[in-house]
Simulated assay, not measured.
Amino acid sequence: MASTHYLLANPCAGQNIGYLRLAVVGDSAVGKTLFARQFVETLPEVLSHDWDPLKPRRTNGDDDGAEDDDDDEDDYVQTQALTERFSSTMMEIPWDNMDTDDEVPARNLVFLDTPGYGSVIDARTNFALFMNHVSQTFEEKNSKISPFIEVTNNELMRSLVTGVGAHKFIDVCFYLIVHRLKPLDIEYMRIISEKVNVVPIISKIDTQSEQDVQQLKVHVLKTLREQGVSIYTFRIDYDRLIHMAETGQAGGPPFAVSNVPPKPSSEDPLDQIPFTHAMNELPLLRKLVLETQINNVRQFTVKKFINWRSKQIALQQQQQQQMHAPMPYLPVLQSLQDLAASAPTIA
């Protein structure tokens, strides 16, 4: 049973967020579920959460012999399905029940939690699950646009980019990385970026030194630029982002996020060695996504849909032309028929 928890909030700020859909993607054991929860659970604008309760993982003491993994998704069960987690930053009238004037939580902030790629033998299975969901949102919206009325891209942009959100597209995909950038991460980010604004995140920075995180930031940015991967840069060019990473300036991707639960105090001297990790940039990331850059995020999302739709239209036109084009063998067939008609008839 989903749980609903009401909090004090700033209703005006929450109203400004409108409807927004986010996704968290990455390999297994990178902390996706914890990241999603931390992103929204401490937001002062949130009125309520409607998240399914998480179930504890099986431990070594279970009869099935399942192993307990300390690095797993914050010690919760991994699922092989997409999970939508809802939060509300505003109230709305339930239009499907016109007999009441009572407002209900809008569930306007949606986080799509995805299974890790490493949780199955074939990583493409879980990735395809996510991409099929993304493609379906595009196809559903496109099916509602009348094919008998010519709609310009500018008209589509004006109708779909609103201050409260006018679509069910995923606006931002947070792609989580821990310790290193793998070739699979690069290819997945490349494919996702065609339809979603991808924002790389370096998670679990509590397990890495500040210098390690800084070096990983530079490596991620340089590699993605060299590989031609188009991430959402918050209107900052790659050269500027690399300079910021090299000099330790916050403000752009990849963002360093602390999403590791605090360990219990220990008297072991080895656990008391001073360790300086990078600054947690989660508050800055939330401010950019939910406040200062939210309109730009929505515009880029709709642009991706329009580009996809233009390619679909071009493909359909090409297929129609091929269907109506004369077949290359028809002239030869006609010549054979003419020759047969002119041949003498044998009695």
Rank of each mutant, 00 (worst) to 15 (best):
T162R: 07
G163W: 02
G163I: 02
G165N: 02
H167G: 03
K168M: 11
K168S: 10
V172P: 04
F174R: 06
L176D: 02
L176I: 05
K182D: 15
L184R: 14
I186A: 02
E187Y: 08
Y188S: 01
M189I: 05
S193T: 00
K195W: 13
V198G: 10
P200T: 14
I202S: 04
I205Q: 03
S209A: 07
S209P: 12
E210M: 11
E210K: 08
Q211W: 02
D212H: 09
Q214P: 08
Q215P: 00
Q215L: 07
L216N: 05
L216G: 05
K217D: 06
H219R: 13
H219G: 00
L221G: 13
K222Q: 08
K222H: 01
T223Y: 01
T223V: 02
L224R: 04
R225A: 10
G228K: 04
G228I: 08
G228V: 12
V229D: 03
S230C: 00
S230D: 00
I231W: 00
Y232E: 11
T233C: 12
F234D: 03
F234L: 07
I236T: 09
D237V: 02
D239F: 00
I242T: 14
H243T: 10
A245W: 01
E246C: 05
G248E: 07
A250Q: 05
A250L: 13
